[in-house]
Design a protein around this nucleic acid. Sequence first.
DNA 1: CGGTGTAATTAGATCGATCTAACAAGAAAG
DNA 2: CTTTCTTGTTAGATCGATCTAATTACACCG
Lengths: 346, 346
Amino acid sequence: MERSSDIGVQRKTLNDIAKHAGVSRATVSLVLRQSPRVAVATRQRVQSSISALGYVYDRAAANMRTRSTQTIGLLVCEITNPFYAELTAGIDDALDRAGWVAFLANTAESPARQDRFIARMREHRVDGLLLAPAEGTDPKIIDDLRAAGVPVIQMLRRLGKRNADQVSADFRLGMTLAAEHLIRLGHKRIAFVGSGRRASPASDRALAYRETLSRYGLPIGPIVNCLPTREEGARAVAELMRGEASDPTAVLCYNDICAFGVLLGLADRGLVAGRDCAVIGFDNIAEAALYRPALTTIAIDARRLGEEAANLLLHRIKAPHGPPESIVLAPKLIIRSSCGGKPTHH
Amino acid sequence: MERSSDIGVQRKTLNDIAKHAGVSRATVSLVLRQSPRVAVATRQRVQSSISALGYVYDRAAANMRTRSTQTIGLLVCEITNPFYAELTAGIDDALDRAGWVAFLANTAESPARQDRFIARMREHRVDGLLLAPAEGTDPKIIDDLRAAGVPVIQMLRRLGKRNADQVSADFRLGMTLAAEHLIRLGHKRIAFVGSGRRASPASDRALAYRETLSRYGLPIGPIVNCLPTREEGARAVAELMRGEASDPTAVLCYNDICAFGVLLGLADRGLVAGRDCAVIGFDNIAEAALYRPALTTIAIDARRLGEEAANLLLHRIKAPHGPPESIVLAPKLIIRSSCGGKPTHH
DNA sequence: CGGTGTAATTAGATCGATCTAACAAGAAAG
DNA sequence: CTTTCTTGTTAGATCGATCTAATTACACCG
């Protein structure tokens, strides 16, 4: 009894097609690569053999000669963070358009895990890497990869000082916009929640907070360290709000997740954000518009950022010796209800 | 001037190592694969040559002979959905432990895009596929892949009726638990929001809703179609709550996202979930615990589900002819505040 | 009619690993 | 001393494509 659906059927090769179509292996290869040097009649004959035999192109074999795999490695510091999920979706979009595929690695903020994945991806001969570095990443890996001839695009977090290919957003400008918004609304005691992170996006934001407040002659602080989780954000409120007259009237947060935590913390203490205290987040993740009160925040277009990063990497792979490029997206203030007043966005 | 950090350095090969260590290519290969048939002295000599020359193993070349790539394809219907992001993290974890890597594709619920990615992954010779199918996926693709000898694990959504390898959760039981909870609380008019989806997890939930209500002799409906977005969930409330005495007193939702939408819709109409209306979600995504009111929901352990799926696929790749396995995780009712009463979880 | 140019096709080497089967050297057995 | 066995090593074929350089077929031209 023949079982056509059985597993382990021999995969067809170029030789099988060649024999079936009565041409040489080389000609079939030319057809596959849409070479114009093949006669129309031959091309058609080959193409019908290909579909008759159900041939599947073996890119891995082809890669051996061409020395390129049309494959990249994507290293994300935390895929369960909606911002990075959106970034990933943007990357995936751009790669799909170009016909490439990505190996995914969720490093979960572990540099050791990141190293392991990078090694594994290099063994698979990826043509390049997109790196949203885990916290505590040794900047040396950029040099190592460069020495090995592996193009890398840094996303969001800067490693080391040297100029390299990177895609990011202007976090300082973003936080400045946020602070100025609060100052325009008349706030004088503005707190900052979330300075605890070492990575560059965090230090950029904390810096802009200090700079802007001092530029307007306002007192700096209180500043509360806080990991980007809602639990921590809620806990931070306990440190900020002591029921005294000197309590802050507004809070700038490291990101939306922290801000949600702060909103929770306020609600749990019977305070209403937007009335008793102004709160601003950062990132504009999807939930920001859909929370109540809706969160005023700084929008970073994560999907667009992903697309730019993927395109820059593909460009760099084509032109490995070109000068480093740095793409910095502009942030945008999105006014909703968490600072009171009339929202311009829902 | 020598530039050691220049791009495009020739990659070292087995032959280079062999020459450097004064042995044959075959011996180096044996060392790399930790064969016990190599003398200790030789092994050490080879190993020091390997690190001296900075050799990087070329798995792609090795794959040509071994006919296995230690690579799988992961197709996710929507990576920006936190449930699937969590699932992805679980898969990544399990693969990391095994030393494998995954190609990621975010199909964004597009079957055409899914087909494209599957073809591309097959060209890259993945050893198997993890498929969280896009809505509207043709069940035939499972047969096609089986005929081609590509192991596939279906995740969450069932395709066709035949028994195949799959990992899912008991959605009927989950929705039954949710409905019975509301019934225990004394609700008589229980609505359902989100029946619009065609995929099996949706129909399972809708079915369990009907079954349970009729089992307890309660009227079925109203039922409101609703895509799993907050906007749609909020819109659904307008259809449900007409300010009449016959308005439902409780709402079962397709998933947490819908439920958040319903909470928003209620809030926008001045109604308080847990007091004026009970709401239950499904999935227990991270936000569920951190919303106010905290959402009562059915927990599905997405990370665990991902790990199980990855492990089952690795098992199936080792034993392609084994009988199909079906792993079904048990759901759990998580009581918080959105149905009133004392919450057991925060 | 032989020579030239162009278009279409192909044989054979090649990418970098693994696999097979054979071989060399020394120990153990007869 | 020869035979057999064991241990360690290796030459050469192989995986399935691409690339190079050569070959064929045929039209065109002087």
